[in-house]
């Protein structure tokens, strides 16, 4: 008996030893891939604090003296201050708009009057690549006199995220307990109040997921911003960073500073709301 136990113990120890070595190899490979993911961004961040001659002479060294001149140049000369506030405004406004639109519509599908055909109609938007509607969308805007206006871009962002947002929110709201909403109505809430006071606050997790997705999509968009709002004072951050290359082609520190300015808000959002961002961006895959 004890002999047998001993042997099992030995075997377990051997397995543990083997799996330990295996784990180390695994972690090294994973670490290497993590490094290739992070190094380019780290290079950008470090370069933005260096002088140009430092970047060209020792591209991978740390800055000798951290300087913020490049940031000032990108901020003022490159017009990033203007476009950063533009993009923040576009993103905030379109996230609010898409959440208002999709939460009400999803509530209707989930709790008021389910309508399969209409829901399928909205879902159809998931299949449409932006490129197929880009040209006519711009034609419609200019016919409506909305070319080069903030509202045109905000609506375009909201509509391009609408289907996904409805998809996420309807799935979530379907699982809200009916009893809770009925109780609210018995307590004298109208249907609208039941939505505003009960369903909407309870849907916070899904609202966060859908909102994060919409935010990331807006912040990273180039194509819509480029075609709808090309006027200089309305430019998105993407367009400004893109244009930076034309005006500062040899100033790597200004260019990397511009990239850093554009990346930071996305990284901050990602760090703070990581699970919501990941859930939002993979919602089509993981809940579909």
């Amino acid at each position: 008996m004890s002999n047998q136990k001993n042997q099992i113990g030995k075997r377990n120890r051997r397995i543990r030893y083997k799996s330990c070595a295996f784990l180390t190899v695994k972690l090294i490979i994973l670490g290497m891939f993590a490094a290739t993911t992070l190094v380019p961004f780290f290079w950008v961040l470090m370069s933005s604090f260096k002088t140009n001659s430092e970047i060209y002479g020792q591209p991978f060294s740390l800055p000798h003296h951290y300087q913020i001149d490049a940031f000032l140049q990108a901020w003022q000369g490159g017009g990033l201050s203007r476009s950063l506030s533009n993009s923040l405004f576009y993103c905030a406004a379109s996230v609010v708009l898409v959440l208002l639109l999709s939460s009400t519509t999803s509530y209707r599908f989930a709790k008021i009057r389910p309508n399969k055909a209409l829901y399928a109609f909205f879902s159809f938007g998931l299949l449409i690549p932006l490129h197929a509607v880009l040209i006519p969308l711009n034609v419609i805007y200019s016919r409506l006199g909305m070319g080069n206006t903030r509202s045109a871009l905000i609506i375009a962002y909201a509509v391009s995220n609408l289907s996904m947002s409805i998809f996420i929110l309807t799935a979530f709201m379907r699982n809200l307990p009916d009893e809770l909403l009925q109780a609210a109505e018995i307590d004298g809430c109208s249907g609208l109040q039941a939505f505003v006071r009960v369903a909407f606050p309870l849907s916070k997790p899904a609202l966060a997921t859908a909102g994060m997705l919409a935010f990331v999509n807006c912040w990273n968009d180039l194509l819509l911003g480029m075609t709808i709002c090309s006027k200089e004072n309305l430019r998105t951050i993407s367009l400004a960073v893109y244009n930076l290359r034309a005006s500062f082609s040899d100033d790597y520190n200004v260019l990397t500073a511009g990239i850093t300015i554009m990346i930071v808000p996305a990284v901050v959002i990602y760090t703070l709301f990581q699970e919501q961002v990941i859930q939002g961006m993979t919602a089509g895959a993981l809940k579909g």
Partner: peptide, 22 residues
């Protein structure tokens, strides 16, 4: 109706109409 109409109008105007426009 009130909960569907705004989404529907914007969706049709700026997503469905453009497909036919294209």
């Amino acid at each position: 109706l009130a909960f569907t109409l705004p989404s529907l109008v914007l969706f049709v105007m700026f997503m469905i109409v453009p497909i036919f426009g294209a």
